[in-house]
Design a protein around this nucleic acid. Structure first.
Lengths: 234, 234, 234, 234
DNA sequence: CATGAATGAGGATTCATTCAT
DNA sequence: CATGAATGAATCCTCATTCAT
């Protein structure tokens, strides 16, 4: 009997795309705040100002919604400018790629965790779009490593997988800690240090000038003199 | 009226400790196989040959049970002989500590995952026994790092936290992949490579010939000659 | 702004009758394939290329739509030529009527099932058009029976209802089995056998004591006397 | 705080078997009154004085419950004394078997309908216990037919399947009509008439020689002569 | 005439937890 | 000590139907 205010109606009736976007946005927030396990369609509906039925009109399944949240987010930050430098020192390029991964992930730690810890376990993960998206992210870092190997600047005697696990293990470990509220961290600094450890390790022997080659050069000198010395003695 | 066989009774009526142990053991298997999300008290009861009510007699809450599972497991492997070498090269000691963490975790990836990804997020985590237990594990590795720093063998310009995150990030990343069934990995090799990267990084050693072994070979010669020399001088 | 192709428009905007017909046709297919329980208005709309709202424009209720599907189908096959033979032997006419029912029903077993098992249970069934239509179908068979009775060729000591139930019970039973995919059946043969059993039963021979044989005996006597009589007269 | 009356408690806590029986009984009533489609677990729970959860404790699925209702009912009446007479005339034995089927089915038309129209359509029907139970029922009738054939008392030129379909088609048709409230019927009479039609058909004559056409031919002759005669008399 | 958008009212199933015996 | 019985409170998902445009 009582006609609803047009304003209310205007808010209620949205074109498909906007509604989908609105749901996705709200759902992303819910996923961020609750995690996938406590993610309730009812809460999304309420916070979104719609009914659960409407959500199910656009997303066949709760899981599908979750996946699309992740995908849309990956879409977003994969679409951001990523000035993939093909030139510059390996160190610069690696730092840059690590920095970018770290900062992307840090922006949505909960979503990332969902993708990396739950979706990745899905039997169908490999056939999801998110799989390709994730490959893209990892690829940006690994391309640098690959290049370095090709140029002989990086060692090729360590398994790529291990190197990858160390870099992303570190990135994720940092992020989860942040997610757990164990304190913030500086993306710059973290990327810097990860790069450093990956490239140079933490041994103190690294000589002032920089690379290992210096040390080797010294060693060669020492060895040579010792040889001479011992030759003269005999 | 019909007396049950004593054997049956014996199995049914257990002293508190044995019952608790039995439940814990079964529950651990369930947690391992199902993960904490699919962990059902009903399944534990059934596989354990008791009733859910009995479980609730000893464990006030499903969560408490889960926590105790984790704690009892940590107890177990923390109790194992860990020949914490205070001597030996930093490399050896670090390798040893990493190897030990990796192999412990790999033995029960699902339990570890539960501890590291779920319990760690609990607001009360810091006041749980498992927190101390986990610190102990991490400590075994970090002690080596600390020592190295003290002796000036390791760089002190990188944040301890970062180093810790890289080591355990790598360890966990490896383990999760294994847990997801993405293929097994060699604990030895993995520990070796993690140690290597952490200590030396992945920059090419730049010795003309190439591999690090060359440098090592040279070093050995030098060392040997020097020993002879000093022996001769005395 | 962008004008749609006229063809598209033509397809979209249909005169009432055509739209109704289109919906009815599609809906019939859906009813056939899914059964009334799995009959979804959404599927009809989609397969029909319209919206559910349009369907509700023409059919106040899902049930109304279902009813009209049934009615339109009955209309169709009741409109087919049915050469109701008023002459010929009762056997021929009965066979013919049974054959016709059987083949009509077999053409749309799912629709028939809906009518006979679900609509028939509706409290308002008797006031539906489909009720009259169904009576027509049954009537075509029962007319033959009635005729046979009138002519004294068929026994009148068995309840009409029972005879009707046997004939249509057999027809429907055959059809449901077919609908369940329990194998096809020959309409010809089935009609033949139903006719046979209805008319003659399955006894191998008319027993002496039985009533029929008495009648036959009498008939033979009568015939004989008449023959004599007529022979004597000529 | 307020202790519940023991009476209430006594009613609430039942041994497993009794609870299962109670649920089954209530559920049977609900199935009878509502049909399987409107069968709500909630209604069963309420009328049974328990919760839905309790029902699901004993019956894994709504469908399982439905199936068990049917099975337990079949069990019941298959357990009743069925004096399967191996002697006596075929007519007596057939009448007896038909009568028994008819009266069993008539006692629970809704349940029967569920079994015969819905379960029978289930892909797994053949592997259900109810399938065997139903075979038993049908078998009791078909055994008589088979016997009659063996003894040469019944024709063997008609397909068994057809005969079966006619008998049970008739039985079911009668029963559905009754279920729809189209009026009661006398089991005795119905069984009598079904037996009669099946055995002897509805033709008014069955001449010793064989086919009905002979009798018809004679009748036509008689009729013709009489017509002539009456014409000649006028 | 046509429909995109929206939803109310379910409805089956799950599971940790309680408690009388 | 042990447990059989019971359930409250969710939670995902469905679908016929309405209505503003």
């Amino acid at each position: 009997m009582q006609p609803r205010s047009p304003a209310r109606n205007a808010a209620r009736r949205l074109p498909r795309d906007q509604r989908v976007a609105a749901i996705l946005l709200t759902a992303r927030a819910v996923l961020r705040e609750r995690g996938s396990e406590q993610f309730l369609t009812a809460e999304v509906a309420e916070r979104c100002g719609t009914s659960e039925a409407t959500i199910y009109k656009y997303f066949p399944t709760k899981r599908d919604l979750l996946i699309q949240i992740a995908e849309s987010w990956f879409d977003e930050f994969l679409a951001e400018d990523y000035p993939a430098r093909a030139s510059g020192s390996i160190r610069d390029r690696l730092y840059h790629a690590v920095w970018w991964s770290l900062s992307s992930i840090r922006r949505e730690p909960a979503l990332t965790r969902f993708v990396l810890m739950e979706l990745r376990a899905d039997p169908n993960y490999r056939s999801m779009r998110i799989y390709q998206q994730n490959r893209e992210v990892v690829g940006r870092v690994m391309t640098v490593i690959e290049d370095g190997r090709d140029k002989g600047v990086l060692r090729a005697d360590l398994s790529r997988k291990l190197v990858r696990d160390m870099i992303f293990g570190a990135i994720e470990h940092q992020t989860w800690a942040y997610l757990r509220g164990e304190g913030d961290f500086s993306v710059d600094e973290s990327a810097e240090q990860i790069t450093e450890v990956i490239l140079r390790g933490i041994s103190a022997s690294a000589p002032s000038s920089g690379s290992l080659s210096d040390a080797v050069a010294m060693l060669e000198q020492v060895t040579a003199s010792l040889k001479k010395q011992s030759a003269g003695e005999s």
